[in-house]
Design a protein around this nucleic acid. Sequence first.
DNA 1: AAATACCCTTAAGATAGATTAAGAGTATTT
DNA 2: AAATACTCTTAATCTATCTTAAGGGTATTT
Lengths: 193, 193
Amino acid sequence: MSLEKLFANFDNYIPLNEEEREDLSKRVVERKIKRRQFILQEDDVCKHYTFVAEGCFKKFQVDQKGTEHNLQFIAENDWIMEIDSFYNEKPSRVFIEAIEPSVIFQITKPDLIELFMTNPKFNRNFRVIIENRFVELENRVLQAISSTAEERYLTFLNQYPKLSQRLPNTQIASYLGITPEFLSKIRKEISKK
Amino acid sequence: MSLEKLFANFDNYIPLNEEEREDLSKRVVERKIKRRQFILQEDDVCKHYTFVAEGCFKKFQVDQKGTEHNLQFIAENDWIMEIDSFYNEKPSRVFIEAIEPSVIFQITKPDLIELFMTNPKFNRNFRVIIENRFVELENRVLQAISSTAEERYLTFLNQYPKLSQRLPNTQIASYLGITPEFLSKIRKEISKK
DNA sequence: AAATACCCTTAAGATAGATTAAGAGTATTT
DNA sequence: AAATACTCTTAATCTATCTTAAGGGTATTT
């Protein structure tokens, strides 16, 4: 069952005991999400911390010209949050949309705070979740300021081998900050070698 | 006195009462840092969370060619950490170096954990510190994948008006991910308008 | 099964940004 | 005060990446 995936995810950090699993399961809501369905839209306040049990989402921002820019892909066994909006109740600047049919577990802010209060282990676990994403983001900034598009693409393939097979190249190009045409050219170059 | 700046920094989050200030002051160490002095070098483990009371630092990574890439500037009233290295005791991939003579306060991991344990307010405050940096990082990734160098430069000027006057353009160029020559060209374009 | 939307590739021409080199102007060090 | 090391700028040339346009291939929807 999907809840098991949520529990198992914490085994990567500090595993939960039976009681803690109970606490958590009482506070999360399972949802099935269709392809192309949004779980967060621009200007809405992000009300949930979300765990992806199955499927895949993209988090993106839309510029003045209407072009989408993918900030992140989130597949099964990973967490999505729009931190600024969630904690500070600001309108979100991003959209979060399902790329595949998905199953998620969501927890609201009051419930999360409750967990933090009653048990420091949750505090610690959720801190580690943020830290991991933090490290990922710093790596991305470094790549952005120091590498060519080809290097960034190879890093992406290396870092997300499964994801890169599930995603259309248009989406990957948006994530890398290049046009699909240029990604196509890069792929051709690589295949020559 | 400099310690006051540290206390005042928490007023931006959840202010500390007298007792908490005591707790904190017993666990931080004040250091004076000279220009060009490093407080973290590549391959060392980051042992401290650092608050900058005066001065300015740069956090950068060096690539295979020996080129420096600035990930972040940290000036007075801000926090520096190399999260992955600090929490997971991994060797750091970055250097942190003073650009100006500086005064800092440092806290070790055991002391920080102690604070987290004894008082949830610290937990909360340090989580917010990370969140703020997190938002900054996401904005930078977005800019990197969606904006031209000129747009990124204008955003930088706008976001860090004081910093941009204290830093040499070579350092700003490294932060933006462009060459100093190209930054010079951009500045010329802007001044024409 | 046809229609529609989406996706991938190619190529020509345009623009953003890098590289190299050189010179003048400021700080810093001796 | 001279010497040295940075910093900023300019310009020419080169390379990375974008834009536009077009065609063929796959999914999805009707």
